[in-house]
Amino acid sequence: MILTTNVLFLNIKKFSNLIIMNIKFSDYLKGIFATSIAALIPSKSDATTLNFSDLNQDKKTSELLSEKNNQLYPKLLLSFYDDDSYSAIGHRSHRSHSSHSSHRSHYSSTTNTNNNNNTNNSNSNIALPSKNKSYNSTSTVTTFKLGDRTITEGMKGEDVTQMVNILIQKGYLELKDGQKSVTGIYEFSGVIVDALKEFQKAKGMEADGIVGPTTVYYLKEN
């Protein structure tokens, strides 16, 4: 149940709007100045055409304006709830919203391209992963000991290796080269599952191939 909602509004476009406004104001001033000069100079019959776009903006300013107009600046509403969950809602800003002081109404129009402002669009909620989402290739490796989790077919880890070693010691698995233990990370599949089922049968358990607390107990039992 959601008790309170705090929304952190990422004001991504605010700063860029200020830059654009300053540049346009500068354009107006330059235009007024040019018009005044033209009025003072006596007119000739062959008047030349003055390109204001070249006069008003230097190259860097033009690039900046062009970049700002072409780029989309999605505002992001992050809602954190008391149950430690959160949602992120994308929002494309437009002029009609510039005068709003309250952002409550923005929920109804987020990413709704049909201009149907009163329709809630549940698809606008972006489901974020709860953990281990990373943009680089590094990942956290969790080390499990036998009994820390229930092992089912397909899982891999040090606890599987530990189980393999116990099954070897108890005679349910044999290594081709006659070795008595293995190292590294093993996956719980194939002959290991078959060996465990045999072990479970021998202990009077259901041979389901799942390593739960009771199976761990019998595995650890001398």
Binding site: T5, N6, V7, L8, F9, L10, N11, F15, A88, H103
Partner: peptide, 17 residues
């Protein structure tokens, strides 16, 4: 999380309630 998604922009806190 906020810093990761904010793209180094400023942000402000709005209490909807």
């Amino acid at each position: 999380l906020i810093k990761a998604l904010s793209n180094n922009e400023d942000f402000e806190n709005i209490d909807l309630l």
